[in-house]
Amino acid sequence: MAEPLTLAGLVVPNHPEAGVDFDHADLQFHRVDHSGHSYEVRVYLNNHDATEETGREEGAGYAGSFFIFGHGGCYGEEGHCDPKRRGSHAFDLRPPHPLEPTTKSLEITDSLKRIRDGGTSELDVTLVPIVRSGDVPAAGPIHDELKLDSVSLVTYETSGA
């Protein structure tokens, strides 16, 4: 199964001079592939060493999980599972190709505030994929890595003016 993946360099927002604080923070995971296995993705903050054995405690940097409900490989013929093979047409009313990569989101408000209040200005995100053994046999080969394009940290002020 896929190795943990660390993305470094997100900036922790800290603007005490503004007199206003964020009250909601999301990590957004962009263009996540869901064509293969189904699995849990555990998200750790500022813990490059997180693995499947790492606990899900606040002290270990665990911020939460998201889940990939995967298709388990391709049961169609050549080109069936490739969104790029569909083509791009004006006035195309079809729903998106089922294998267009998706976006996942995880709220990390409390975790981010703890990190900020501890004086850390950068945020690294480590994603640990957890597949349970004994899965249904796949249809053909499945790429074995966690695939996504990027991660964003987005904070919001949802109260006040």
Binding site: S38, S65, G70, H71, G134, V136
Partner: peptide, 18 residues
């Protein structure tokens, strides 16, 4: 996402969209 969590929890065929 929570719905997907349950599918993964059950495993077997429930763990695959197909």
């Amino acid at each position: 996402d929570i719905h997907g969590d349950f599918h993964v929890w059950v495993g077997g065929e429930m763990g695959r969209i197909d």
